[in-house]
Each structure stands twice: as structure tokens, then as C-alpha cells.
Design a protein around this nucleic acid. Sequence first.
DNA 1: CTACTTGCAAAAGGTTTGCATCTGA
DNA 2: TCAGATGCAAACCTTTTGCAAGTAG
Lengths: 153, 153
Amino acid sequence: MTKKEEKKFEHFLTEFKTIVSKKGFKNTTQKDRILEILYFSKEHLSAEEITKKVQVKFNMDIGIATVYRSLNFFEHMNIVESLDVGDGTKRFEFKKEQHHDHMICTNCHQIIEFSDDVIELNQIKIAEKNGFILEDHIMTIYGLCEKCQKTLQ
Amino acid sequence: MTKKEEKKFEHFLTEFKTIVSKKGFKNTTQKDRILEILYFSKEHLSAEEITKKVQVKFNMDIGIATVYRSLNFFEHMNIVESLDVGDGTKRFEFKKEQHHDHMICTNCHQIIEFSDDVIELNQIKIAEKNGFILEDHIMTIYGLCEKCQKTLQ
DNA sequence: CTACTTGCAAAAGGTTTGCATCTGA
DNA sequence: TCAGATGCAAACCTTTTGCAAGTAG
């Protein structure tokens, strides 16, 4: 990761911790580390993977329960979102500024991210039409990726 | 359910059982009953709910393992699909002719079905653009339904 | 007959919870 | 100081699996 990205993260973290304090929660090293792993991860991580990455990168052992509790906390704080890939575990990712959706290979579980304005717009329309207050949405396309198409031939 | 719907189901079941036989699998009363419950259910059912409904409607006890195995079998046969509502259980529904997506209330977990041609079309485009062979897709919108908007005020 | 199914109970696997201890503010 | 956070282990829940017995074709 570049110096610039690091700065960006540090800035985000400082701001986030202020909000946490204001809401009466406490900032801890554990939360910081988990967040840092999520922030810089290009993959969607499971709780167990996060635990391991924290151990490797920061030489710090965190209880898996703490990881789950932090993840739920971050989800409530709306800075992390979870995703069901269909491999039996919940996976988490840092919520980027711009929304995106996922395309998942049913064979190798590889995840490709994409975003599409037309779909975004239509989701809003549909929610309105049904009287829903839109909170979030998941659009996941399942299929065979190019690599697996060849492998399975 | 009307007589006409019953006829339709019987016809479907006969046809499906022929395919099952051809593929070398066996037809059983258990599978028939589970399928009948799914076919006529307006809700998306969990394995446990299906087990209970079979017991009530047909006065027949089915092991939960059998229900799960049948459900997986039906999914492979492409006549049933599963859905993650976010309440900790997998839910199943009979695959209707026309595809539809789901809008789920994050408070009461009520499910509204909808379909939207624009979204369907764009999914195909996105899959193509990324070299995926489209198999399936999930489009789920999360929000607060009208009822819960009032309740939570 | 015999390969596929079922049912039971045990196992598995992910996630949550109770509780004593610790710690940030 | 003390409410919130952590870590451990146990508990929970849903789903899967091994195996002996049953049954469709």
C-alpha cells in the first residue's frame, strides 16, 4: 500500500474513533487492527481469516468472539458490510464510497465487483413503488468464470 | 388451492418424476410431499418449517436430514431455489416459470417479490462483459416496509 | 435383487453468549 | 472509577454425514 493510502486510512480512523467516542463506545487496539485489515484487503474476508491476518501482520492474538463482535459493531456503524458468498461463511468488506455489486463464480468462488448505474436507479424505483425505505441492496450474479469454463471442459 | 392448480401440480409432478427415473434416482413419498408443500407455499420456507408442514398436512413424519437432502436434490434439478433472508436460515421456494427477485424488510423479514426487465437485461450484459456464463442471479433489496416504518416511529 | 433413500443420532462448522477479567476515558 | 470491551470456553443452531435398515424399480 502507498503512503497516500496509509494517510487516507489514518485520517479515516481518527475521524471514525471520534464518532465512536461520541456515541459512548470505546476505542481499542483490537478494533483498530481489524479495521486496518479490512480497509486494505482486496478480498472479502471471513472472521477467521481476519483473525489470522491480524496475527500475521501485527503479531497480535485476538479472540474470534471479539472479531465477530467488532464486525457486527462496524456493520451497525455502517462502515463494513457482509456478504454471503455461498461457501458457508459470512464474508466482510470495508464499505467503499461508491456502491458496487458482486459476480461470483459458482465453481471457484472468485468474486468480481462491478457497478451499474441503470441497475442502481431501477432499485430505487422499485423500492419507492412498494413503499419501502431503501436501506441497502445486494445484487449478486452467479455464473462460471472464464477460467473455470476452461477447467471444467 | 383451486382444482385447476391441483391439476397443474399433478401434471408437473408426473413429468418431474419421469425425469428423476430417467436420471437413475428414485421417487419417494417423502420427495413428493416436500415438493407439494413447496409448490403451494406462498412463503419461503426453512427446512424445519417444511418438516412441520408435511407433518400437519399429510400426518407424516419426515427426518430433517431427508428434508435437507431432498431440498439439495431439487436445487440440483433446478426446480427449487434457496434464499438467504438474513435470519440465520436458508429458505427455499419452488422455482416459478418467470424469474423474480426479492425485497426484504430488515425489521420483520417480510418478503416482497418483484421482477424488472431492465434489471434482468443489464445482468446479462454485465455477465457477458466479464466473460461469465450466467447461471443465476440474486437481486435483493433491503429496507423498511411500510408497516415497520409506522411501528418504529 | 441392489442401488438409491430414509431416519436417527452424532458430528461439523460457523456464530453467539456467559462470565470473569481487563481497560479506555 | 466503572461502563464498555476482551478472551476463553461453552452453548447454540443450522446443516451435513455415517451407518444400518428400508424400499423403489
